[in-house]
Design a protein around this nucleic acid. Structure first.
Lengths: 204, 204
DNA sequence: CGAGTTCTTGACTATCTCGTCCAGAACATA
DNA sequence: TATGTTCTGGACGAGATAGTCAAGAACTCG
């Protein structure tokens, strides 16, 4: 009953995300996004509202993707939980270390830039961090049930620490830390997780 | 032999730092700084050069102060090294948790915003992180010598992990984590540091 | 095919922002 | 006090930037 959109909304959002990701909120011009997507400004404003609304949309999608990705990494049966945790931590360290243009993580970048003055960004970021912590907690709990992590520390505590380590790896990665250094941090963190007391085989 | 400066350079730099700190590099206008300091733009440009040069000056000073503050926290004799380390980690957690306007750390914020595109910022940040890691390494080494941390992990590894935890605390603080959560992270990190095997009193 | 509706394009406005410039002010020295 | 030098304040110009708008394009339904 009317003229249809000539563009793929998700592709445009991805392009806009890359722009915000690369140059930050304040540093990104609507004209940059228009040029990168090939859309006129009228289409952008018509479809997504103003710059802030567009950013919020992009940021929300990014957070959702990030949380979903972590869920995919960590979800599963108790038996493999510890291994999944290890793999996840190493994967983050590896990804951060090999991100040679220092683009880092949009969640971290936007939180640093905007949380202070932008209530909406702060709220979304807060939820994302909470979701990430919850998933880590679930995975640690599973690993404890499986006997791969000792139960003498509350799982949410260990998860909180792991989340901090992950965010720290991200921050140090932006600061130019070498991939090897980031890997070492991941290794050390995992090495210090409390191991259950070795179950000595009983002789009859 | 000429008209002297009518302003205190250090006070102006502090004010400029607060502006950049609050609104970021791209988000800060030279006019904001002029208004906040009460200086005309001519004076600002005359004294510090353009926006980028002023920012670099401010950022360099901030990094120097941050590293010096950490040095003051951590330097001292072997006997108190572990306690100083504890105090430092808790102090960071406390400061981050009670920073209610989420201003965070200028080093982290600027690195996140600028490192990707600004070589000078990236280099200065990299040096600052290296210095922080070195100081943590020294302190861990001292604590190991004093027998308060086990020697089974290389000190630079433990220091790297601690630095990541500290930067993670900072990142999560910006993300709205509660002071209690940040304290818990600090506690857990310290609790997991390898303790030396208890020296059992020898019976004759 | 015609009418109605929504989308597109890019010119346009109003405002913001960086950085310059200059006329006058403030000071040291002779 | 006269002179030379540097600093100050703010007006100014050039260009950037967010957001609007109108004229026409594309499509659906009757």
């Amino acid at each position: 009953m009317a003229r249809p959109r000539s563009f793929d909304e998700r592709a445009v959002l991805r392009t806009a995300r890359d722009q915000f990701w690369s140059t930050g909120y304040a540093g990104t011009k609507i004209d940059d996004i228009a040029a990168a997507t090939g859309l006129g400004k009228g289409s952008l404003y018509g479809a997504f509202g103003d710059k802030h609304a567009l950013f919020l949309r992009v940021f929300d999608d990014y957070c959702t993707d990030a949380v979903d990705g972590t869920r995919r990494d960590l979800a599963g049966p108790d038996s493999g939980a510890y291994q999944r945790l290890r793999d996840h931590v190493f994967a983050i360290a590896e990804a951060t270390g090999t991100d040679r243009d220092l683009r880092g993580c949009l969640l971290a970048k936007s939180t640093a830039e905007c949380a202070e003055h932008d209530e909406a960004v702060a709220a979304r970021a807060s939820r994302a961090f909470r979701d990430l912590a919850d998933q880590l907690t679930d995975c640690v709990t599973a690993a404890q049930r499986a006997g791969d992590i000792a139960g003498d520390q509350p799982p949410d505590r260990l998860a909180g620490l792991l989340l901090a380590v992950l965010r720290g790896i991200e921050a140090l990665g932006k600061g130019g830390a070498t991939p090897a250094a980031l890997r070492a941090i991941a290794e050390t963190a995992l090495a210090l997780l409390p191991k259950p007391v070795m179950e000595t085989p009983r002789s009859p």
